[in-house]
Each structure stands twice: as structure tokens, then as C-alpha cells.
Design a protein around this nucleic acid. Structure first.
Lengths: 235, 235
DNA sequence: GTCTGATGGTCTGACGATCAGACCATAAGT
DNA sequence: ACTTATGGTCTGATCGTCAGACCATCAGAC
């Protein structure tokens, strides 16, 4: 009997969840500091391009989470306990992710357009080298190799050099190392590795078939997922 | 007028899209090689935890994409022709403009969201300092000051540092200096300065009013105009 | 203090996505 | 030839999201 690939359950995200998390990010990044009034429901509807019911649901869950409260008929960002409001470690991680998002998405797009056949094949091969359950040290080394391979095929030496500095910052980061310390949260590390396996494969495949938008979107999704995962673990 | 963060439209993903892309990844990764029979709809339903309608829709779109085909009453993975490679050659100027486009557009967007009131006022003032017909040396110095002022208000020190290196590259560039040499083409220099005056003012005004999209678009337009202008002069 | 506009709250009807299930025609396997 | 498995089609139901209407209350201007 021949085996076939097995697939996991489909991930589903509700519109209100997307909105809630986006607002949460704005609160935690300082874009919406404590005490600030939240944009009105109608304004948020326009921004997000959704109905008031979706925004309302998201806002209600922020209330439930204790992140916003009502003063009169206006919502405000709730003060958080000292030490929690602005975490310098979180700021650094966000900063690095923001840099990665700015450069990595463009690099992936350029690589999809410019990489040679050999480079594309190498990328897919490098992505396939990731396996779930692999040791953390191997993962980090392969992770860097993978992203650097993409940078090498973007066809822009200056961008490549800049990205090298971002990678240096990421891999020198104490916060990243702490978060991925396998002795403190083995299951979480396994999840991150599994997620990276899938994401890297998607990015490599998109680059392989020359899908610029696909490569850019996959790179951005990957970064968002990893960032969410890491920020969540820093609570 | 106090500014508020702006949000983009919510990303929405249908269940069938998730499934389609997951299957596509399996095909392109070699997990489902060309010629292989696709798992049955019912088997995929169980794997993904969805209804047959969702799987059917995903499978139908793979057919539409030409990735699978039907033999009898079974679906099989379709052979693909090798992709066409594109190997463009870029000059140093294009490379630097590309780096600027990648970082500068994001910096402008971030500055529009995060700059303090003081910083916004400074930007408008710096932009107003440009006057048509100003000496080239003054222009280059003010140009750098203006772009650096935007970088300083983007709220990300790492991105700021990276951009500093790009600016160093731009202003150290022999090609840029040669192209702006006033002794060889005074009229062209006047045109570039005039264009920059207008563009800088637009960028500053967008940042002043907290218009992230406007700031990003103005920054990108400016770069495209200058690049086109310079590339045209390199023929 | 009054008035106006903006806010959040609630409700309704509609639509699309997805579901579970049933049934059928055809092909594959035994 | 028969059985089983496959994809195709259809129905009714549920849920998420939508657009819109209307209302009570609050904030801001005068």
C-alpha cells in the first residue's frame, strides 16, 4: 500500500480576530499608548474595510482582555502594570521584525524574479533540509542559511549587505536566544520549528516558480506568524 | 490636530484557498510528484477537517491553474514545463535606488504614523528650505538633511542605521556626483532641484497630516522620478 | 445651559461561505 | 460481472459577516 502525504486541519481566522490582534499590536507597540482614545468604530470600519459588527466584536474582546475600557461613550487604552506596558525586550524584538519585514519581503520578491535556476533549486533543497523535531542548534543554523540564500539571489549586493546586518542583529539577539531556549519550553520550540518548516517551503516554492507576489506574501506571513508567536511568549 | 494610527484592510482567506495552496506546496515540493494520483476528496476532507464542497472548490482551482488533470474518475498531478528565467543586469545606480525604494518608502510610512508634532513641523520647515535655483552644493546638503530627518522620526533605530548606510552609499556615489555635475548640464540640474522641491514638500505635508499612504506614495513617486531622470541621462 | 454632532448599543434582514448529508453516474479493482 | 470507490450534483441548515436603521448617551461648541 503506497503512502500519501497527510495534511493537518485548515487554519481559520475570523475577521474580528484579525482586527483584535491588529489593535492589540498597536497598543503594545505604543502606537496607541495607555490613556489614548481608541479610534471610533466607524473610523476603524473604514480603515479595515469591514462592517461595524466585526469591529464591535473585536473591540468587545479587547475589553474582555482588559486592554481597553470605556469612559463615557468613548473607549480608551487601559494602563497596564509597570514593567508590562513597554517592555524594552519587546521593543527590540519588534524593531528587528520591522526591519526584517521591510527588507525581507522585498528580497523575497526580487529573488522570485531574478534567481537563477540553480539558485532556485538550492533554495528548495535548503528549505527541504528543515525537518520537524530537528535540534534547535541545527534549526538556527539552517534558518540563517536559508534566509541568506534568498538574499544572495535577490540581485542587489547593497540590499544583501544591509540584510546581512539585520540577520546579524537577529542572531546576536539575546531576546531571540532566550525565547528559543529549548530547556525552558520544548513544546514551543517544536511549534516554532514546525511553523518555520512549512513557511520556508512555501517561500522557496514561490521563488522557484517565479511567483513574486506569492514569495512576498509568504515571507510576510512567515514573519508575522513568528513575531506573534514570540511576542505572545514574552508576556 | 492629533493623529491616530491608520490600519489597512483586513486580510481574508477562504478555506478553499488555504487548501489549494497547501496542495500546491505539496505538488511543488515533490511530495506529490507529477503523474501521482491526488488523494481522494473524502480523504482530503478528513485530513483538512472540512466539507467536500471546500475541498472540491480547491481542487477545481488547481485544475484551472493547470496543476492537476483528470484521468478517468481520478485526479493526477500534471507535468510542468521548466520556468523561464530572467537575468537582468543592474547598474550601481539602480541598485542604490532599489535599496532606497525598499527602505525609504517604509520609513516615510512609519514617520507619518509615529513622528512627534515637533518632528512633523521640522520636516515641513526643512522641505520649505528648498528653493528652485539654489546652488547644487546647498541642495545636496539639504537633500540629505531632509531624508535623514524623516529617518529620525520613523521610530526604529535599526532601520534608521540601515538607511544611514544607504544614504552614505548614495552620497558617496561617483555616478550620482557625475550626473549632477552642474558644469556639464546646468538645465538638467535645475530640473532635478525643482522636482525635488515639489516632491519633498509633498512628502513633508503627508507626514505632517499623518497620511501614511500619502507619505509612502509620495516617497515612491519621488524616487521613481529621480531614478528615471538619472537613468535617462546615463544612456 | 442648550444644542448639535459623534459615539457606542441594539436590532433586522440579507448574503456568502461552509457544513452535513443524500443520491447518482462512472471508473477502478477484484 | 460484480463490488467498491471515485467525482458530480443537489438540498437544507448554520454561521460569519454585511449594510442599514434607529436609539440613548456623551462630548464639544457656543
Amino acid at each position: 500500500m503506497t503512502t500519501r502525504p497527510r495534511f493537518g486541519p485548515v487554519a481559520r481566522r475570523m475577521v474580528s480576530e484579525e482586527i483584535r490582534d491588529t489593535l492589540l499590536e498597536s497598543i503594545e507597540s505604543g502606537e496607541l499608548p495607555p490613556g489614548t482614545q481608541l479610534p471610533s468604530e466607524r473610523a476603524l470600519c473604514q480603515d479595515f474595510g469591514v462592517a461595524r459588527t466585526s469591529v464591535r466584536e473585536a473591540v468587545q474582546s479587547l475589553i474582555a482582555l482588559g486592554r481597553i475600557h470605556k469612559i463615557g461613550n468613548r473607549f480608551h487604552v487601559t494602563e497596564q502594570l509597570p514593567g508590562v506596558t513597554v517592555d524594552p525586550r519587546k521593543s527590540r524584538v519588534r524593531e528587528l521584525f520591522e526591519c526584517r519585514r521591510v527588507i525581507e519581503v522585498s528580497i523575497a520578491r526580487l529573488a522570485a524574479s531574478r534567481a537563477s535556476d540553480t539558485e532556485r533549486d538550492e533554495l528548495v533543497k535548503t528549505a527541504d533540509a528543515f525537518v520537524e523535531g530537528m535540534p534547535l542548534e541545527d534549526f538556527r543554523r539552517s534558518d540563517r542559511l536559508f534566509h541568506w540564500a534568498i538574499a544572495r539571489s535577490c540581485g542587489n549586493p547593497t540590499l544583501q549587505e544591509l540584510y546581512g546586518k539585520v540577520l546579524d542583529g537577529v542572531f546576536a539577539s539575546e531576546e531571540f536566544r532566550t525565547l528559543l531556549d529549548s530547556s525552558t519550553n520544548a513544546q514551543a520550540v517544536r511549534d516554532v520549528i514546525a511553523q518555520a518548516c512549512n513557511a520556508h517551503r512555501r517561500i522557496a516554492e514561490a521563488i522557484k516558480r517565479g511567483d513574486e507576489d506569492g514569495a512576498a506574501k509568504s515571507a510576510e506571513s512567515h514573519l508575522n506568524e513568528v513575531e506573534h508567536s514570540m511576542i505572545a511568549r514574552m508576556i
